[in-house]
């Protein structure tokens, strides 16, 4: 069954949180995982759920040879 917008945002956030430090997930990885668990989910809703996570600062885009969605963390490359 398709998730509501709020449920979808939390579903994706949990995936990113669980993967943190273990696997970097691309936006498309998240979409595929959502559709696997909820085949009738609208793809566009997934895109906008990721957008909401980014816009609210709960997740950030990172670039390490490709663009990933991650939980905000300390910049490893920067000197602090």
């Amino acid at each position: 069954m398709a998730l509501s917008k709020e449920e979808l945002v939390e579903f994706i956030y949990d995936m990113v949180l669980k993967a943190q430090g273990k696997k970097q997930l691309k936006a498309m990885d998240l979409q595929k995982a959502v559709l696997k668990a909820h085949p009738d989910q609208d793809k566009t809703m997934v895109k906008f759920a990721i957008k909401e996570l980014i816009d609210t600062g709960r997740c950030v885009y990172t670039y390490f040879g490709g663009s990933f969605v991650e939980i905000p963390h300390e910049e490893g490359a920067a000197k602090h």
Binding site: I54, Y63, E75
Partner: peptide
């Protein structure tokens, strides 16, 4: 690379240190 950027965007800023 890295995580630098502006809020809401995942493109347009390329981190360099």
């Amino acid at each position: 690379g890295g995580i630098v950027g502006v809020l809401g965007y995942g493109s347009g800023i390329i981190g360099r240190y």
